[in-house]
């Protein structure tokens, strides 16, 4: 329950309201190991603690990087931190994306908004062993073009590794040369073999609901669809009870769930 102290090694502005903190243990001890999809609890002195997904490794960072959107008191306080500042960290916690399961298969990654952050480590993991996976598609949607994260990396993923990257925004002005429409409409624009595809979806709950529907419509079976859930969370170790989603504790059974395991509760109002 007691955080370890970490130092901000680097602070990266990702978009108008989103930034990344690259962290290292203050006492110089080795970095914690983690699986793509896991999260840490970050503590800003005197303000509080929030669960933040690990969004790296990514080029030019030490590896323990967290991408944070400023939406409340704690994330605002984290945004105030400068390079060299200290924060508290507990973790890593939670389940991870099914990389092993995806080996030899096509992979469709669907991300909405900040939902790309916990999926970025998956992308780098797939790229490490590119030939072990079939078609890889990344479908990414945000509200507006200036909400897009990690834009510099798209071209590398596309060009060097042959990933089908489809970016779409909900609305844009005429300067935007890309797609406009909801992220689910991109599913029809990429090629994959539905019977041999693992889908990994992360974004707002409603977006995921429609993305799951569309993947099922394309013929991907429910046990090949993985998604993340989000609920209020205080302790991250199954004690506080806040993150319950039906029978699951999101902190320890999630945040990554196989769709068929939670579908009974997914979509029920106020669950």
């Amino acid at each position: 329950m007691t955080p370890s102290l970490y130092t901000v090694k680097k602070k990266i502005a990702e978009s108008h309201d989103t930034f990344s903190l690259d962290l290292a243990p203050r006492d110089g001890s080795p970095l914690i190991t983690f699986q793509p999809g896991q999260f840490n609890m970050l503590y800003a002195f005197g303000v509080g603690e929030v669960p933040i997904s690990i969004s790296g490794p990514a080029p030019g960072t030490s590896g323990l990087i967290h991408t944070i959107r400023e939406v409340g008191n704690v994330t605002r306080a984290l945004h105030q931190l400068k390079k060299g500042a200290t924060l508290g960290l507990r973790g890593p916690f939670g389940s991870s994306w099914p990389i092993e399961e995806a080996r030899g298969k096509d992979v469709v990654i669907i991300a909405g908004g900040i939902g790309l952050a916990p999926l970025r480590p998956v992308i780098y993991k797939l790229l490490e062993q590119r030939n072990q996976f079939g078609n890889i598609a990344l479908l990414y949607g945000t509200r507006e073009p200036n909400d897009l994260l990690f834009t510099k990396e798209f071209e590398i993923w596309r060009g060097k590794y042959g990933i089908q990257v489809k970016i779409t925004v909900d609305t844009a002005d005429s300067n935007w040369r890309g797609n406009v429409g909801v992220v689910t409409t991109s599913i029809a624009r990429v090629s994959f073999e539905p019977a041999h595809t693992i889908a990994m979806i992360c974004g707002p709950e409603i977006m995921m609901r429609y993305a799951v529907l569309e993947m099922k419509r394309r013929g991907v079976s429910e046990d090949h669809i993985y998604m993340t859930m989000e609920r209020n969370m205080k302790c991250a170790i199954g004690f506080c009870g806040h993150c319950q989603f039906g029978p699951a504790f999101i902190c320890k059974d999630g945040p990554v769930f196989r769709y068929d395991k939670v579908k009974h509760f997914f979509g029920i109002r106020e669950i």
């Binding site: 949607g141 945000t142 509200r143 909900d170 609305t171 429409g181 909801v182 974004g203 707002p204 429609y210």
Partner: peptide, 17 residues
């Protein structure tokens, strides 16, 4: 139908806080 569904999802402004 799909366009209408997409429009409705866009209306939800999913990504806004």
């Amino acid at each position: 139908g799909q366009t209408m569904e997409a429009t409705r999802i866009q209306l939800l402004d999913l990504y806004g806080a």
